[in-house]
Each structure stands twice: as structure tokens, then as C-alpha cells.
Amino acid sequence: MTDRIAYRFANQDLLAQALTHRSAGAPHNERLEFLGDALVNLITAEALYLRWPGVDEGALTRARAELVRESALAPIARELELGARLTLGPGEMKSGGHRRDSILADALEAVVAAIYLDADFETCRAAVLPWFEPAMAALPPPNKVGKDAKTRLQEWLQGRQKPLPVYELVAESGEDHAKTFRVSCRVAEPVLLTEGEGNSRRSAEQVAAEAALAAIQVARGKEQLL
């Protein structure tokens, strides 16, 4: 484990906590995850700022979002073999929680926080930044980093002085470890109501926004959307 993450813990209890899911009882990794989320955002933001001098805030923000989303963090956790080392409750173990993107991404953020608390920010950054280097190198040029559906919909509406969309949670179902969320996206002008489903509220909102963009595209023919 220490070889994979390139850091040797002085306090092994911090590492153990970072790899303990809440289903296994306390002390678990949720508080560490909270801190690690902020650290990952800072480390990647600083790296992008230095890598892309002169690039505007919008492109930097979109690039960082690409690096820190759940589906980007989970592969890093797999590369570090965190899944095999997770401590899970019986239910999560039975359902394959050690393979789930959300649990792996949370564990990765918790490990980042554990390194920071065990040492300091500079040490944490030195250990963590190499994990993100392949993904950073694979990013498209700054002016080509794609905007997500919610951003494109918001910018399209703002550019025409129209009210912003309103997202509402319609329903959620499933067990805690495998919930499905359904979210609506209401656009006042043009009048639209679309829905989307996802394994998080955020992903469901993106699906609903994409559906709204598609409906606007159909209604307006070939007009280019942002």
C-alpha cells in the first residue's frame, strides 16, 4: 500500500480510518473525505493554474471538474489498489462495494486527507499530484475542454436574458449503497420540463439538463447551442 501511494504513514490509524466505510462503523472516513475533497480541488487547481498560464477561469474550472469527478477519481483508487484494502460492513461487502466508483472515489479523497494530517500540505501535494498527472496530460487543449450540460444550458439561457433553470428532486429509490435519483429540470422560457436519472443527484441533474438542451435544439431547428 505505501509503495503504491508513495507515502509512508507515521500514524497508521489515519490510513486505517481513511479506508473504513461508514457501513463498517466508527471511526469511518466521511470526515476525512470532506477534507480530502477540498485538498484534491486545491492541488489540481494549483497544478492547472501553473500548467496553463493565461487561460481564463472558465476553462480552468471545467478542466478541474474533469479531474475531480467521481468517474475520474475511481480509476486512480483502482490503480492504488484501494478497493482490496477497504473495510466495509457486511452489506457493502456482499454487494461488491469495494468495486463501486462512489466508494472508491470517497476513499481516495480520504487517503489524501490522511496524508495531509499525517504530514503537511507540501508533502501531501508531492505525494498526490503524480496520481493526477496522466489525466492532466490527457486533457484536451484549454479552449477545447467541454462544458457540462448544466453549464451549457445556463449559458444559453443567460445569453438570451431568460430565467435560469430550476432543478428539483422528484424521487429517489434503492438501498443506501445503490440509490437512484430522479430530478426534474424546469425551464420557464421556452417552457420545458425534462427529467433525468442517475446514481447521484448531480448526475441526474446533468441528464435532465442534457434532455432540456436536446428539446431546445429540436424546437429551434439548427440553432447552435453553447
Rank of each mutant, 00 (worst) to 15 (best):
G36F: 00
G174M: 14
P75S: 14
L50C: 06
E122P: 08
A77Q: 09
F181C: 12
L225D: 08
P190M: 01
W52I: 06
A212N: 11
A6V: 02
R4L: 13
L80I: 12
A215C: 12
Y49G: 15
P165Q: 12
A178Y: 02
M93W: 06
D106W: 03
L82Q: 12
A47K: 01
P163F: 01
A119M: 08
R160Y: 10
L108M: 10
G198D: 13
S203A: 03
A149H: 03
E172D: 14
A38Q: 14
I76G: 05
Q154K: 14
I76Q: 04
A18W: 09
V191L: 03
R99V: 07
S203T: 11
G174D: 14
G91Y: 03
G54L: 00
L193K: 02
E109D: 09
D37M: 07
L80C: 14
E109A: 13
L213M: 13
E81W: 02
E133Q: 13
Y7D: 15
L117S: 09
A208I: 05
H28R: 01
R78P: 13
L88A: 05
A45M: 12
A137R: 11
R8I: 14
P53H: 06
Q217H: 12
G25W: 01
E46Y: 01
F132S: 10
E223G: 13
F121V: 05
R69N: 06
A72F: 01
E46R: 12
T2Q: 13
V40M: 01
D56Q: 01
P140Q: 01
R4W: 05
L192Q: 05
E223D: 15
E175Y: 05
V111Q: 13
A137M: 05
R182K: 13
R100N: 15
W52F: 06
R22F: 10
V187H: 01
P140K: 00
P130T: 08
Y116I: 04
T61I: 02
L193M: 03
D118H: 13
G58Q: 02
A212P: 12
A26H: 12
N199P: 12
N199H: 10
S95Y: 00
E109G: 04
L108W: 06
V40F: 00
E197V: 14
K144R: 07
A171L: 05
K222D: 09
A212L: 02
V166E: 09
A204S: 09
L157F: 06
R62T: 00
A126P: 04
F121I: 05
P134V: 07
A6C: 04
G97T: 01
A59Q: 06
V55A: 11
E122Y: 02
Y116A: 14
K179Q: 11
D106S: 15
E172V: 10
E175T: 09
A214L: 14
V111R: 11
T87A: 06
E133V: 14
V55L: 05
T20S: 15
L80D: 13
I43C: 11
T180G: 09
L193F: 00
H98M: 13
